[in-house]
Amino acid sequence: MSTPLLEIRDLTVHFPLPKPFLFGSTRVLKAVQGVSLTLNEGECLSIVGESGCGKSTTALSVMGLQEPTSGEILFKGKPLTGPNAPTRKERARIAQMVFQDPYASLNPRQTVGRILAAQLALHDIAHGSEASHRVADMLSRVGLTPDHADRYPHEFSGGQRQRIGIARALMLDPKILVLDEPVSALDVSIQAQIINLLMDLQETLGLSYIMISHDLSVVEHVSDRVAVMYFGRVVEEGDWHSIFSRPTHPYTRRLIGSVPDPDAILSGDRGLPDAAEIPRNARFSPDVSRKPDPHENVEPSQLVSIGATHRVRLAQ
């Protein structure tokens, strides 16, 4: 098997929590615990799970915005983390990111043209009129018009801003695009447009996507492979078909069950407890009325293959 484009090996990220007043030991939030994932060239890997499950932290680690506690991330076999990690500038050519909130992701004081062109000058790709030419080109590519370059971000709608965010991420011609909930802040009708744009771009530019989402209905349209995360671990991973046609882990089933269905009968559901409160070996309980029981103390198993590309974690 050839080297995957991106390989996440046993990634662990811990955050120290503030100490309780005077006494008490430092608590640690184990946001990501031993996540291993691969991304092949030209594919879209989706990481799904609820908020606090560590999917965004995983994405930030890939981007170098979050230092992993342990584990490594390899791009074409070369480490992106640790002592031999590339500089911020070198990394920029490898992976770029589209952010969740289109309102916070554009500097309100810069024109769209400047937002897009600044990185070209930094990386010495293009200057002056050549840069504005590229900006105009990219704007039309994401469905805007070249004259939008002179405007400020507040003159655009949410969907247009997200297009600008995508344009910014593509200016350096990266190999990987990390999409952190790219459409969750948008109206449903706009969501479809952005999803279609992302799929078009993937095809024409040969990009590889890592898409972070809590919404399976979005993931369903773009993903080649899906990884389901639950409290810092991958509980099920597989190609699109196996996850959606044969969801095996009870948590995956519940996620798929949570996709809005007009015919569904509403039932009372309760939220999950704080991520920091979850004991290390917590098991997912298919019975939503039950909290994870720390006394069961079952060691989480490894992911077990149950199909050609389909793996599931048994104990957790």
């Binding site: 981007m63 170098g64 915005l65 500089t87 911020r88 500038k89 070198e90 990394r91 920029a92 050519r93 992976a95 770029q96 990111m97 952010f99 969740q100 909130d101 916070a104 992701s105 554009l106 500097n107 309100p108 004081r109 810069q110 937002i115 600044a118 990185q119 930094l122 990386h123 965010g165 910014r168 991420a169 200016m171 350096l172």
Partner: peptide, 26 residues
């Protein structure tokens, strides 16, 4: 921690540049 500052980091800008062009004007 807003997107545009993170985006500038991801684009490879240095900390001094980010403070000057992204944070200071705001």
């Amino acid at each position: 921690n807003q997107g545009f500052v993170q985006a500038a980091k991801v684009a490879g800008f240095g900390d001094g540049n980010i403070m000057r062009t992204q944070i200071l004007p705001n």
